[in-house]
Amino acid sequence: MNVSRSQAKPLLAGHPITRRGFLARSAALGAALGAGSLACGTGEQDYAALLSPGERPKQLGVREYVVLREVADRLVPAEGEKPGALALGVPARVDGELAFHGPKLRDDLEAALQLVEWWPLLSKGSRFSRLDPSAQDAVLADMASSRLAARRTAFQGLKFVTVFFTYTQEPTWPAIGYDGPWVPRKRPAALA
């Protein structure tokens, strides 16, 4: 067994990434890739138009929130009668969760979402939120197995919050055979 194989493969070889480092590099990547956003006509109003009437994030920016919706819909898509992350309100739950945390988590999440949104400009010539579902799946699969730790970490973080806040919801339990708690629910801790 070779130690070097076991070590992290950071974005910059030889310098293990820290949260700050991850953020800085992700943000730089996002900014560089997103420089084409103006040319693509991607102002905030374009993103806002994709939201339901009255649907607005409380913590994330509108662009990031729209990307989160797109990502959540691919990570846990609806399947027949089985609800997906969107129907379960997971993007709003994740957005609301940020109110309980310091700015670091929001910054990390936003950086991850920017990376998801703009990276496909390189490989597919389009931002993530404009890709069709199968192309979005391909982008996410590529992130999960990327050689770049920042891309993998972005995927991992987004997957964690999406699937956790999906499968902790009762409507998902019958399909997975989970028979649920034995005591009544107290006031949901998600409510500030």
């Binding site: 691919r74 990570l75 846990v76 699937v163």
Partner: peptide, 15 residues
């Protein structure tokens, strides 16, 4: 189920 979902591999239909 929440923690299990976070640790199981993959996403989408496979997950």
């Amino acid at each position: 189920p929440g923690a299990l979902a976070a640790f199981l591999p993959g996403f989408g239909a496979e997950h």
